[in-house]
Amino acid sequence: MLEIKNLHARVGEVEILKGLDLTIGSGEVHAIMGPNGAGKSTLSYVLSGREGYEVTSGTVLYQGKNLLDMEPEKRAGEGVFLAFQYPVEIPGVSTMNFLKASVNSVRRYRGQSEFDAMDFLKFVRRQTKVLNIGDDMLKRAVNVGFSGGEKKRAEVLQMAVLEPTLALLDETDSGLDVDALRIVGEGVTALRSPERSMLVITHYQRLLDYIVPDVVHVLADGKIVDTGDKELAIKLEKNGYARYAEAAA
C-alpha cells in the first residue's frame, strides 16, 4: 500500500529526514512515536505534498504510484488524507460548505457523482452523530473559534466523509482533554477497515489506548530506529526517548 525507501527530505538548508524506510500494508495501523524534532510532522507533510518540504532522495510508492510526483489535491483524490496537528482557520467559509467543496472535488477526481445539497447533508449527518458534532458546528466558519476538541473532531469528520485509503494523523491527541481524546480515538477506530491504512503520529502513548496500532515505530533524528508492537509504545511511555536520542547522537 505504502512503501517508503531511503527518504531524505529537508526544509530550507536543514535535513530533517535522513534515510527513512517504512512499509504499511492495506488495513494496517502504524504508529510513529518519537521525541520533538525527530521529523514526525515533516514526514506527514512530505507525504501530503506541502510546499517547502523538499525531497532530496528516496522513493515513496503509494498503491504502486509515485506519490511524490503528485500535486497535493491529486494525492487527496488518490486517497491520502492528513489530519492536521494545527487545523487551519478559513474565515467566512462554513464548515458545511468546505466539506461539500472538498468531498465533491475528491468525488469528481474519483469519477463518482457529486452530491447535491440535500444528499450531502444526509451523508454528513451519518458521521456527525458518532463524533458528537451538532449542526451548529457545521454552520460555523472552518475552525474559526473552535475549541481544541472541536478542531480535532472536525478533522476526523473530514476524514470520515473523504473516505481515504491512507490516513495520516499528525499529533491528533495534542490539545485534547481526556473526554475529547476518547471521542476522537473512538471516531478514528470506527473508521478502521481492511482497505484503509493509517499512520498515527504521536508523542504520547495515551492516544494508542483508543487507536490500537498493529505496529509501532520509533522515529529519531530522521530515521526509524526501532519497530515493535503495542508493547513498545508502553515501554516508551515509561522510559522516554533518551536512549534513542543518545544512539542517534
Partner: peptide, 15 residues
C-alpha cells in the same frame, strides 16, 4: 496564507 491554501488542497480542492 500558504497554510490555508495547503489545507484546502490537502482536502482535494484545486488551488
Amino acid at each position: 496564507a500558504d497554510d490555508q491554501l495547503f489545507y484546502c488542497r490537502q482536502r482535494g480542492i484545486s488551488e
